[in-house]
Amino acid sequence: MRRPRIGEASELDLMAVGFLLPSVLYVVVMFIYPFLYGIWVSVHPLKVPGFSLANYIAFFSDEYQYKTVGITFRLAVPNTVVVVALSLFLAYNMRRGIWLERTITTILVLPISLGVILLGQGILGFYGGKGWLNQMLLALGVLEEPLVLTHNYIGVMLSLFMQQFPFCFLMLLGYISGIDPSIENSARTLGAGPWTVFQRIMLPLIAPGLAIAFALVFVMSFATFPSAILLGQPSGATRTIAIAAYAQAFEQFDMPYASAIAVIMGLFQLAALLIIIVLRQRMVLAATMGVGKR
């Protein structure tokens, strides 16, 4: 028997299968199976024997529960638009590199690594009723009354922005700086101004990356949990769908109902992803070099 050549681009042999199998098994057992089990359990409610959609019906007929969907959309959509727009502005202008670029990107990584809990605690202190910002504005005479920026909608938006802006910006920076500069240079040589270059040349090239960034930020915002608890009103104005799912699981101990809410949350996220992927297919495919900033 011929010993297959190493690295031969071919069918899977025994070695390749053996190499892939452990990680595939792990993802299937710990990710796919729980997901399917969650769906199964969600249609087998605690109170009703056998198959029943009672949990889903309960969710959509209880105002306290179904209005979490609206609340979550009202947080996720504006946040996604602001985050993506500002990231595009910053990343586009930094595509050729700017002064102190490495320092700036490093500082921007901080909020990602610090995590949401620490940021939340800091935002409570800094933006709170007696925080530094309010003290400063009151001392300068800009304000008469302190601004209420925490334990409400604005607090959650602040926290979401701090977490997701760096993420989205670094993604787009990697993407935009991977676009062949000679395309842009040709347009400039032929007499296009900066705005025309952006609108007619660069934007269509960036659009596919922008679509993915938009989808990722939206999906992340839609699952907001710690921000909405620490900086919002978890039982009122910022009771997001993730809080509803958590409350069913760990306060009411109704795992089937909790799973049903998680499934509903997943379906909304999936729908958003599908819509954006379909839109992306219709856009011009970017002629990037496929090599981002490394």
Partner: peptide, 26 residues
């Protein structure tokens, strides 16, 4: 296969964390 590996990164942890916790507690 790449999609299978990509899913746990794409789907928020809160979404699959609850079914996962349900399974692990079971």
């Amino acid at each position: 296969l790449l999609l299978l590996y990509f899913l746990p990164l794409l789907i928020p942890q809160m979404t699959y964390g609850i079914p996962l916790a349900t399974t692990l507690f079971k």
